[in-house]
Deep mutational scan, measured.
Amino acid sequence: QVALSRTQVCGILREELFQGDAFHQSDTHIFIIMGASGDLAKKKIYPTIWWLFRDGLLPENTFIVGYARSRLTVADIRKQSEPFFKATPEEKLKLEDFFARNSYVAGQYDDAASYQRLNSHMNALHLGSQANRLFYLALPPTVYEAVTKNIHESCMSQIGWNRIIVEKPFGRDLQSSDRLSNHISSLFREDQIYRIDHYLGKEMVQNLMVLRFANRIFGPIWNRDNIACVILTFKEPFGTEGRGGYFDEFGIIRDVMQNHLLQMLCLVAMEKPASTNSDDVRDEKVKVLKCISEVQANNVVLGQYVGNPDGEGEATKGYLDDPTVPRGSTTATFAAVVLYVENERWDGVPFILRCGKALNERKAEVRLQFHDVAGDIFHQQCKRNELVIRVQPNEAVYTKMMTKKPGMFFNPEESELDLTYGNRYKNVKLPDAYERLILDVFCGSQMHFVRSDELREAWRIFTPLLHQIELEKPKPIPYIYGSRGPTEADELMKRVGFQYEGTYKWVNPHKL
């Protein structure tokens, strides 16, 4: 086992960053958080920038500027975001240094004079007029057009580079997404736009490419001749908990499936790229999406959770019991969808996408189930092999396979070949997804960000279904809070070829 401390991990990262040409360590950078008073800024962006600063992973002359409508001070920003920093008493001095680099400007999102004030403020910072500028839009999409237009007109660096990070949702359907994309691309070049999907920053999602293309053993079996089906799962054990009003506007397909799960599907299904260059990788992902037809209604199961009468606390409440959810809402909190990649490698292999709230566990994984062994000599005792990439929690890679049961006879039983990170790298604290992705933006690497043509294809696949749901308002199937979801989803999976045995229990190697 390799035991690495946080300091050692960050030392390795620093070495990698400083050796590259793309990370300008000594240049002045300004990180501007648009929507600095909001939840995302408070819980994710400010803490992430602090962790990067604490670990010495930001360029040395980096300033952080918050911008929002609320009249706040840096002290206010500190008060609301610091509880999420997880700072230790030993880091007190470092924390003071961090907040000394912070400033805040209040202004409207659609007022040109406010942006001119913001620009004057940035120019007044040390070497601010020639600094590289990175704008993070932690804002609702309704203000994107006004904000990007004003940034472009008043706040661009004339000497350094300018980059803009856009948070999902990128529209509600193909038409609104196209409108937003066309607007942003009329102001910024594609190499300046970073559409963030934080799932692409997760260690195991990034590991998929290495697993596939750096190991000879997987190449020959990664196709329709050997793989019976692919299941991509995202499960949350909690409901909307008072935030249903926002969720109800989008629903589970827009929230998770059309982005996170579809991105994971691309990494499983794509061909080997010409290189690890950002556009070479994204070219292959677009090719996969172009091979997927629009979702067919007979390959869809929609569910909505109801309270568990035997549960406790939140578990007793259904989705419609959330006071922020519109009365009688038919918005799905669970969806199972089957897609097919219609190309030579994957023809006929079902890709089953499942996601839901208020389920029995927290889990995100990719599961490849292989065909049955031909010419069975073990009297149907063999179960199908599976390769599982567990994204969260407890990152893991393992192969479910058959071995001989101890004893006199040739009785096979299920076991696993474990390729888990935790076994080799004991207690290594890896940077989280937002840390990686923000560092990628500083480096100018777009590999783990969504390109406009990729986004367009993703919406093309799901828009007809979303429009049909909005028009017909089908009643989702009720499922109990804390269950596996509607049984109809299991029946759909069985119908397209997935075999669920229920006889195997994964042993978490992190707890051995």
Rank of each mutant, 00 (worst) to 15 (best):
K404W: 01
V286G: 09
I292V: 13
A458D: 01
M257A: 12
T403G: 10
D322Q: 06
G311Q: 13
L339K: 02
S278F: 08
E472R: 15
G307F: 05
V450W: 00
D490R: 07
F410S: 11
V337Y: 05
V373A: 10
L465H: 09
E386T: 04
S329P: 05
K285V: 03
L387C: 06
H260P: 02
N385E: 00
Y500D: 03
L267M: 13
M257D: 04
K404N: 02
K404L: 05
W459F: 03
P406T: 06
E365K: 02
K290S: 14
Y504S: 06
P476K: 02
L353A: 05
M447G: 03
P393F: 02
K317F: 13
D347I: 07
I469H: 11
A297H: 14
L471W: 12
D347A: 09
Y398C: 00
A297V: 14
L417M: 10
W506Q: 04
T276K: 13
V428K: 12
K473W: 10
R254C: 07
V397H: 00
Y340L: 09
V338H: 09
Q258M: 00
P350A: 00
A489M: 09
K383Q: 15
P393S: 09
P350W: 01
R345T: 15
P412T: 12
D490P: 02
V306H: 13
Q468E: 14
I469E: 09
K400E: 04
N298M: 10
I469A: 11
I469R: 04
E314T: 12
Q304N: 04
P478G: 12
F370A: 00
M401G: 00
S452G: 15
Y319K: 00
E294F: 12
L465R: 06
P474G: 12
V286Q: 09
N299M: 12
S278W: 07
G307R: 09
Q258Y: 03
R282D: 01
F442K: 05
R451G: 04
R460T: 07
G311P: 09
V397W: 07
Q258S: 07
R362Q: 12
L267W: 02
E414H: 09
G444H: 07
N277C: 11
R362D: 00
P406Q: 08
V295L: 13
K429D: 10
N308H: 14
Y305I: 00
V325D: 02
H379G: 13
V281E: 04
M270L: 10
D376R: 07
I292S: 06
M270I: 07
F442H: 07
P486G: 04
R384S: 08
L471C: 09
E414S: 11
W506E: 05
F449I: 04
L359M: 14
V325W: 07
L368R: 04
G348T: 06
N360K: 06
L267I: 13
G356H: 05
D453F: 00
T420L: 02
G318T: 07
R424Y: 06
A269S: 12
E454Q: 05
V337M: 09
S483H: 07
D279E: 11
N277I: 10
G356D: 01
T324H: 08
A335H: 00
K400F: 01
E435M: 09
G444D: 09
A335N: 03
R424L: 00
N427K: 09
Q258L: 05
N343T: 09
P393C: 06
I377K: 07
L387V: 06
V301G: 00
G375S: 15
Y481Q: 11
S329Q: 06
T487M: 10
G307M: 08
D347L: 10
T324M: 12
L387Y: 06
N427V: 06
K494I: 14
L262S: 09
R436D: 03
S278E: 10
D280C: 13
L262D: 01
Q392K: 03
T316C: 14
I438L: 12
V373E: 13
Q392G: 14
T330P: 12
G328R: 12
P273I: 00
V325I: 07
F378H: 05
E365L: 04
E395W: 03
K400H: 00
R282F: 01
Y481I: 09
K429G: 15
T463N: 11
M257T: 13
Y481E: 02
L359Y: 01
A336H: 08
A315M: 15
G348C: 05
C382Q: 13
F351W: 06
Q258W: 02
D453T: 07
I352V: 11
L302F: 12
L492V: 08
W346P: 06
P431E: 09
W506P: 05
M401R: 05
C266M: 07
E457K: 02
Q446T: 09
N259L: 00
E454N: 03
R495G: 13
P273G: 00
E271N: 07
C355L: 05
Q392H: 07
V325G: 04
K272P: 10
E470W: 08
A335F: 03
E342I: 10
R362M: 05
V306R: 14
P486N: 03
C382P: 15
L265W: 00
T487P: 15
L302A: 08
K405Q: 15
G313L: 12
P476N: 08
P393M: 04
K473V: 11
C291M: 13
K426Q: 12
E414M: 15
D440F: 02
Y500W: 11
V337C: 15
T403W: 07
M408G: 08
Y319T: 02
L466H: 02
K473T: 11
E271W: 00
G318D: 11
R354N: 01
P474T: 15
R451Y: 03
C266Y: 03
L265G: 04
Y340C: 09
V450I: 07
Q263I: 03
W459C: 04
M493F: 12
A433Q: 00
G497R: 09
H371P: 03
V256W: 02
G311N: 14
A336V: 13
F410E: 09
E472D: 14
L465A: 10
L261K: 05
E361N: 08
G502W: 08
A489L: 06
S415H: 04
R327D: 15
G497V: 02
V373G: 06
Q446A: 07
E312W: 12
P273C: 04
S278C: 10
A374E: 15
I469M: 14
V306F: 14
R390F: 04
P326C: 06
M493R: 07
G444I: 05
A315V: 15
C382E: 09
L437H: 00
L262P: 04
